[in-house]
Protein backbone atom coordinates (compact mmCIF):
# COMPACT_ATOMS: atom_id res chain seq x y z
CA UNK A 1 0.00 0.00 0.00
CA UNK A 2 2.85 2.34 0.88
CA UNK A 3 4.56 1.70 -2.44
CA UNK A 4 1.25 2.20 -4.21
CA UNK A 5 0.74 5.56 -2.52
CA UNK A 6 4.28 6.76 -3.33
CA UNK A 7 3.90 5.76 -6.97
CA UNK A 8 0.56 7.55 -7.30
CA UNK A 9 1.92 10.65 -5.58
CA UNK A 10 4.90 10.83 -7.94
CA UNK A 11 2.59 10.71 -10.95
CA UNK A 12 1.12 14.05 -9.83
CA UNK A 13 4.21 16.08 -10.74
CA UNK A 14 4.35 15.57 -14.52
CA UNK A 15 0.58 16.11 -14.75
CA UNK A 16 0.77 19.28 -12.67
CA UNK A 17 3.64 20.58 -14.82
CA UNK A 18 1.65 19.92 -17.98
CA UNK A 19 -1.33 21.74 -16.52
CA UNK A 20 0.82 24.73 -15.61
CA UNK A 21 2.12 24.88 -19.18
CA UNK A 22 -1.43 24.71 -20.50
CA UNK A 23 -2.69 27.42 -18.14
CA UNK A 24 0.24 29.66 -19.04
CA UNK A 25 -0.22 29.19 -22.79
CA UNK A 26 -4.01 29.58 -22.65
CA UNK A 27 -3.90 33.35 -22.43
CA UNK A 28 -1.54 33.51 -25.36
CA UNK A 29 -3.84 31.68 -27.74
CA UNK A 30 -7.01 33.62 -26.96
CA UNK A 31 -8.22 35.85 -29.81
CA UNK A 32 -7.80 39.10 -27.86
CA UNK A 33 -4.44 39.95 -26.36
CA UNK A 34 -3.62 40.37 -22.69
CA UNK A 35 -2.57 44.00 -23.01
CA UNK A 36 -5.86 44.99 -24.70
CA UNK A 37 -7.83 43.26 -21.93
CA UNK A 38 -5.80 44.95 -19.21
CA UNK A 39 -6.20 48.36 -20.81
CA UNK A 40 -9.92 47.80 -21.28
CA UNK A 41 -10.30 46.80 -17.63
CA UNK A 42 -8.52 49.98 -16.58
CA UNK A 43 -10.27 52.10 -19.21
CA UNK A 44 -6.95 53.15 -20.67
CA UNK A 45 -6.46 53.87 -24.34
CA UNK A 46 -4.53 51.56 -26.65
CA UNK A 47 -1.59 53.87 -27.30
CA UNK A 48 2.01 52.61 -27.84
CA UNK A 49 3.08 54.20 -24.50
CA UNK A 50 0.30 52.50 -22.58
CA UNK A 51 0.97 49.18 -24.31
CA UNK A 52 4.66 49.41 -23.32
CA UNK A 53 3.73 50.34 -19.75
CA UNK A 54 1.34 47.41 -19.37
CA UNK A 55 3.84 44.99 -20.91
CA UNK A 56 6.43 46.11 -18.38
CA UNK A 57 3.92 45.94 -15.52
CA UNK A 58 2.81 42.40 -16.42
CA UNK A 59 6.32 41.23 -17.34
CA UNK A 60 5.30 40.61 -20.94
CA UNK A 61 8.42 42.32 -22.28
CA UNK A 62 10.61 39.45 -21.03
CA UNK A 63 11.47 36.35 -23.10
CA UNK A 64 8.61 33.82 -23.05
CA UNK A 65 10.65 31.14 -21.20
CA UNK A 66 11.51 33.63 -18.47
CA UNK A 67 7.86 34.67 -18.27
CA UNK A 68 6.85 31.03 -17.83
CA UNK A 69 9.34 30.31 -15.05
CA UNK A 70 8.44 33.55 -13.25
CA UNK A 71 4.79 32.63 -13.48
CA UNK A 72 5.45 29.02 -12.40
CA UNK A 73 7.51 30.17 -9.41
CA UNK A 74 4.63 32.32 -8.21
CA UNK A 75 1.97 29.74 -9.10
CA UNK A 76 3.82 27.17 -6.97
CA UNK A 77 3.21 29.51 -4.02
CA UNK A 78 -0.43 29.84 -5.14
CA UNK A 79 0.21 33.40 -6.21
CA UNK A 80 -1.45 34.23 -9.52
CA UNK A 81 -1.09 37.98 -9.20
CA UNK A 82 -3.85 40.56 -9.01
CA UNK A 83 -7.21 40.44 -10.71
CA UNK A 84 -7.63 43.03 -13.47
CA UNK A 85 -10.79 44.16 -11.69
CA UNK A 86 -11.05 45.05 -8.03
CA UNK A 87 -7.33 45.01 -7.22
CA UNK A 88 -7.82 41.71 -5.35
CA UNK A 89 -5.43 38.81 -5.07
CA UNK A 90 -6.45 36.05 -7.47
CA UNK A 91 -5.60 33.39 -4.87
CA UNK A 92 -8.06 35.00 -2.43
CA UNK A 93 -10.78 35.16 -5.08
CA UNK A 94 -10.21 31.51 -5.97
CA UNK A 95 -10.18 30.38 -2.32
CA UNK A 96 -13.40 32.28 -1.55
CA UNK A 97 -15.10 30.72 -4.57
CA UNK A 98 -13.67 27.30 -3.80
CA UNK A 99 -15.15 27.36 -0.31
CA UNK A 100 -18.64 28.03 -1.68
CA UNK A 101 -18.26 25.49 -4.46
CA UNK A 102 -17.05 22.84 -2.01
CA UNK A 103 -20.10 23.47 0.16
CA UNK A 104 -22.31 23.04 -2.88
CA UNK A 105 -20.42 19.90 -3.87
CA UNK A 106 -20.75 18.44 -0.36
CA UNK A 107 -24.49 19.06 -0.39
CA UNK A 108 -24.63 17.44 -3.82
CA UNK A 109 -22.80 14.41 -2.47
CA UNK A 110 -25.38 14.14 0.33
CA UNK A 111 -28.13 13.94 -2.31
CA UNK A 112 -26.00 11.64 -4.40
CA UNK A 113 -25.35 9.15 -1.61
CA UNK A 114 -28.89 9.22 -0.24
CA UNK A 115 -30.80 8.93 -3.48
CA UNK A 116 -28.31 6.67 -5.26
CA UNK A 117 -28.34 4.28 -2.33
CA UNK A 118 -32.12 4.27 -2.13
CA UNK A 119 -32.75 3.94 -5.87
CA UNK A 120 -29.85 1.57 -6.54
CA UNK A 121 -30.48 -0.90 -3.71
CA UNK A 122 -34.25 -0.98 -3.99
CA UNK A 123 -34.15 -1.19 -7.78
CA UNK A 124 -31.77 -4.15 -7.47
CA UNK A 125 -33.98 -5.73 -4.86
CA UNK A 126 -36.97 -5.70 -7.17
CA UNK A 127 -35.84 -5.51 -10.79
CA UNK A 128 -38.58 -4.04 -13.02
CA UNK A 129 -40.48 -3.05 -9.90
CA UNK A 130 -41.77 0.41 -9.07
CA UNK A 131 -38.48 1.82 -7.77
CA UNK A 132 -36.52 0.29 -10.65
CA UNK A 133 -38.85 1.84 -13.22
CA UNK A 134 -38.78 5.13 -11.36
CA UNK A 135 -35.00 5.12 -11.34
CA UNK A 136 -35.01 4.36 -15.07
CA UNK A 137 -37.27 7.34 -15.77
CA UNK A 138 -35.13 9.59 -13.55
CA UNK A 139 -32.02 8.32 -15.39
CA UNK A 140 -33.47 9.13 -18.81
CA UNK A 141 -34.76 12.54 -17.76
CA UNK A 142 -31.64 13.42 -15.82
CA UNK A 143 -29.42 12.74 -18.80
CA UNK A 144 -31.68 14.14 -21.48
CA UNK A 145 -32.74 17.46 -19.95
CA UNK A 146 -30.08 20.20 -19.85
CA UNK A 147 -29.02 21.12 -16.34
CA UNK A 148 -30.13 24.77 -16.55
CA UNK A 149 -33.61 23.65 -17.61
CA UNK A 150 -33.73 21.36 -14.56
CA UNK A 151 -32.61 24.30 -12.41
CA UNK A 152 -35.29 26.67 -13.70
CA UNK A 153 -37.92 23.89 -13.43
CA UNK A 154 -37.05 23.35 -9.78
CA UNK A 155 -37.17 27.11 -9.18
CA UNK A 156 -40.58 27.25 -10.85
CA UNK A 157 -41.97 24.42 -8.72
CA UNK A 158 -40.34 24.81 -5.31
CA UNK A 159 -39.74 28.56 -5.19
CA UNK A 160 -42.42 30.21 -7.30
CA UNK A 161 -45.39 27.78 -7.13
CA UNK A 162 -44.96 26.24 -3.69
CA UNK A 163 -42.87 28.98 -2.12
CA UNK A 164 -40.96 26.48 0.02
CA UNK A 165 -37.43 27.34 -1.00
CA UNK A 166 -35.54 30.51 -1.99
CA UNK A 167 -34.60 31.20 -5.62
CA UNK A 168 -31.08 32.49 -5.37
CA UNK A 169 -28.11 33.43 -3.22
CA UNK A 170 -26.28 31.80 -0.35
CA UNK A 171 -27.85 33.30 2.71
CA UNK A 172 -28.86 30.22 4.70
CA UNK A 173 -28.77 26.43 4.67
CA UNK A 174 -32.10 26.45 2.80
CA UNK A 175 -30.43 28.18 -0.14
CA UNK A 176 -28.23 25.17 -0.88
CA UNK A 177 -31.09 22.71 -1.40
CA UNK A 178 -32.16 23.57 -4.95
CA UNK A 179 -28.73 24.11 -6.52
CA UNK A 180 -27.33 20.94 -4.97
CA UNK A 181 -30.34 18.90 -6.05
CA UNK A 182 -30.01 20.25 -9.59
CA UNK A 183 -26.33 19.40 -9.68
CA UNK A 184 -26.93 15.95 -8.18
CA UNK A 185 -29.72 14.84 -10.51
CA UNK A 186 -27.58 14.04 -13.54
CA UNK A 187 -25.10 12.04 -11.47
CA UNK A 188 -27.77 10.23 -9.45
CA UNK A 189 -29.13 8.79 -12.66
CA UNK A 190 -25.79 7.35 -13.65
CA UNK A 191 -24.78 6.04 -10.24
CA UNK A 192 -28.16 4.55 -9.29
CA UNK A 193 -28.23 2.53 -12.51
CA UNK A 194 -24.60 1.56 -12.02
CA UNK A 195 -25.21 0.37 -8.45
CA UNK A 196 -28.34 -1.52 -9.40
CA UNK A 197 -26.63 -3.32 -12.31
CA UNK A 198 -23.53 -4.13 -10.28
CA UNK A 199 -25.58 -5.52 -7.43
CA UNK A 200 -27.64 -7.72 -9.71
CA UNK A 201 -24.43 -8.83 -11.40
CA UNK A 202 -22.67 -9.64 -8.15
CA UNK A 203 -25.67 -11.49 -6.79
CA UNK A 204 -25.15 -14.05 -9.56
CA UNK A 205 -21.44 -14.54 -8.79
CA UNK A 206 -20.26 -17.91 -7.45
CA UNK A 207 -18.75 -16.37 -4.32
CA UNK A 208 -22.25 -15.44 -3.17
CA UNK A 209 -23.40 -18.98 -3.69
CA UNK A 210 -20.30 -20.23 -1.86
CA UNK A 211 -20.87 -17.87 1.04
CA UNK A 212 -24.47 -19.00 1.26
CA UNK A 213 -23.24 -22.61 1.26
CA UNK A 214 -20.90 -21.76 4.12
CA UNK A 215 -23.95 -20.88 6.09
CA UNK A 216 -23.35 -17.14 6.30
CA UNK A 217 -26.40 -15.07 6.99
CA UNK A 218 -27.88 -13.27 3.95
CA UNK A 219 -27.64 -9.72 5.35
CA UNK A 220 -24.00 -10.40 6.20
CA UNK A 221 -23.27 -11.63 2.65
CA UNK A 222 -25.02 -8.63 1.24
CA UNK A 223 -23.22 -6.12 3.45
CA UNK A 224 -19.74 -7.60 3.39
CA UNK A 225 -19.60 -8.94 -0.15
CA UNK A 226 -22.31 -7.95 -2.62
CA UNK A 227 -22.70 -4.29 -1.64
CA UNK A 228 -18.98 -3.75 -1.12
CA UNK A 229 -18.04 -5.34 -4.45
CA UNK A 230 -20.74 -3.37 -6.21
CA UNK A 231 -19.22 -0.15 -4.94
CA UNK A 232 -15.90 -0.81 -6.72
CA UNK A 233 -16.69 0.73 -10.13
CA UNK A 234 -18.32 3.68 -8.40
CA UNK A 235 -15.29 4.24 -6.19
CA UNK A 236 -13.11 4.16 -9.30
CA UNK A 237 -15.08 6.91 -10.98
CA UNK A 238 -15.75 8.97 -7.86
CA UNK A 239 -12.61 11.07 -8.38
CA UNK A 240 -13.69 12.14 -11.84
CA UNK A 241 -17.22 12.61 -10.53
CA UNK A 242 -15.97 14.92 -7.78
CA UNK A 243 -13.99 16.93 -10.32
CA UNK A 244 -17.02 17.08 -12.57
CA UNK A 245 -19.15 18.32 -9.70
CA UNK A 246 -16.67 21.13 -9.08
CA UNK A 247 -16.47 22.09 -12.76
CA UNK A 248 -20.06 21.23 -13.60
CA UNK A 249 -21.24 23.71 -11.03
CA UNK A 250 -20.59 26.55 -13.50
CA UNK A 251 -24.13 26.51 -14.92
CA UNK A 252 -25.84 25.70 -11.63
CA UNK A 253 -24.00 28.46 -9.79
CA UNK A 254 -25.02 30.97 -12.41
CA UNK A 255 -28.65 29.87 -12.39
CA UNK A 256 -28.90 30.06 -8.59
CA UNK A 257 -26.50 33.01 -8.10
CA UNK A 258 -24.33 30.76 -5.94
CA UNK A 259 -21.05 32.63 -5.35
CA UNK A 260 -18.65 29.80 -6.16
CA UNK A 261 -15.88 29.06 -8.63
CA UNK A 262 -18.40 28.68 -11.46
CA UNK A 263 -19.70 32.22 -11.08
CA UNK A 264 -16.15 33.52 -10.78
CA UNK A 265 -14.86 31.81 -13.91
CA UNK A 266 -17.91 32.82 -15.96
CA UNK A 267 -17.34 36.45 -15.15
CA UNK A 268 -13.57 36.13 -15.59
CA UNK A 269 -13.98 34.65 -19.07
CA UNK A 270 -16.53 37.26 -20.13
CA UNK A 271 -14.33 40.09 -18.90
CA UNK A 272 -11.08 38.48 -20.11
CA UNK A 273 -9.64 38.54 -16.60
CA UNK A 274 -6.64 36.38 -17.48
CA UNK A 275 -4.99 35.98 -14.06
CA UNK A 276 -8.27 34.62 -12.65
CA UNK A 277 -8.71 32.26 -15.61
CA UNK A 278 -5.18 30.91 -15.10
CA UNK A 279 -5.71 30.52 -11.36
CA UNK A 280 -8.97 28.69 -11.95
CA UNK A 281 -7.47 26.28 -14.49
CA UNK A 282 -4.60 25.38 -12.16
CA UNK A 283 -6.88 25.08 -9.14
CA UNK A 284 -9.46 22.87 -10.86
CA UNK A 285 -6.75 20.70 -12.40
CA UNK A 286 -5.23 20.19 -8.95
CA UNK A 287 -8.65 19.26 -7.56
CA UNK A 288 -9.03 16.69 -10.35
CA UNK A 289 -5.59 15.26 -9.65
CA UNK A 290 -6.13 15.01 -5.87
CA UNK A 291 -9.66 13.63 -6.28
CA UNK A 292 -8.36 10.97 -8.66
CA UNK A 293 -5.61 10.10 -6.23
CA UNK A 294 -8.14 9.73 -3.43
CA UNK A 295 -10.41 7.59 -5.58
CA UNK A 296 -7.40 5.35 -6.43
CA UNK A 297 -6.71 5.01 -2.71
CA UNK A 298 -10.37 4.23 -2.05
CA UNK A 299 -10.36 1.60 -4.78
CA UNK A 300 -7.17 0.13 -3.35
CA UNK A 301 -8.72 -0.02 0.11
CA UNK A 302 -11.81 -1.76 -1.23
CA UNK A 303 -9.97 -4.12 -3.57
CA UNK A 304 -6.82 -5.92 -2.36
CA UNK A 305 -5.91 -6.83 -5.97
CA UNK A 306 -5.33 -3.14 -6.72
CA UNK A 307 -3.35 -2.70 -3.52
CA UNK A 308 -1.08 -5.59 -4.34
CA UNK A 309 -0.48 -4.36 -7.87
CA UNK A 310 -2.08 -7.18 -9.81
CA UNK A 311 -4.80 -5.00 -11.24
CA UNK A 312 -2.59 -2.03 -12.11
Amino acid sequence: MKRFLIRQAFLIFPVALLVSLLAFSLVRVFPSDVVASYLKAHQQTYTPENVAMVKARLGLDKPIIEQYFDWLKNAARFDFGLSYYGNLKVSNIILMGLKSTLQLTMATIVWLLAVTYFLGVYAAKKPNGLVDNLSRIVAILGNAVPIFVVGFLLIQIFALKLGWLPVSGKLSLKHVILPSLTLALGNICVYARMLRNEMLDNAEKPYVFYAKARGLRTPWIFRKHVFKNSLLPMAGTSGICFGHLICGSVIVENVFAWPGLGSIITYAILSRNYPVIQGYVVCVALIFIVANLLSDILTALLDPRVRLGSAL
Binding site: L113, A114, V208, T218, P219, F222
Partner: peptide, 28 residues
Protein backbone atom coordinates in the same frame (compact mmCIF):
# COMPACT_ATOMS: atom_id res chain seq x y z
CA UNK B 1 -29.63 -18.13 -7.58
CA UNK B 2 -31.31 -14.73 -8.12
CA UNK B 3 -30.76 -11.66 -6.09
CA UNK B 4 -34.42 -11.68 -5.10
CA UNK B 5 -33.80 -14.78 -3.04
CA UNK B 6 -31.92 -12.71 -0.49
CA UNK B 7 -34.12 -11.60 2.30
CA UNK B 8 -31.88 -8.78 3.18
CA UNK B 9 -32.27 -5.67 5.23
CA UNK B 10 -32.56 -2.68 2.94
CA UNK B 11 -29.88 -0.78 4.86
CA UNK B 12 -26.95 -3.17 5.03
CA UNK B 13 -24.31 -0.56 5.80
CA UNK B 14 -26.38 2.21 7.17
CA UNK B 15 -23.99 3.23 9.94
CA UNK B 16 -21.08 4.33 7.73
CA UNK B 17 -23.48 6.21 5.49
CA UNK B 18 -25.02 7.91 8.51
CA UNK B 19 -21.52 8.88 9.58
CA UNK B 20 -20.87 10.33 6.13
CA UNK B 21 -24.06 12.33 6.26
CA UNK B 22 -23.21 13.68 9.69
CA UNK B 23 -19.76 14.81 8.55
CA UNK B 24 -21.06 16.40 5.39
CA UNK B 25 -23.93 18.01 7.24
CA UNK B 26 -21.53 19.50 9.75
CA UNK B 27 -19.31 20.90 6.99
CA UNK B 28 -22.33 22.36 5.25
Amino acid sequence: MGFKEFKMRPNPSFKPILAWFSCLGLIL
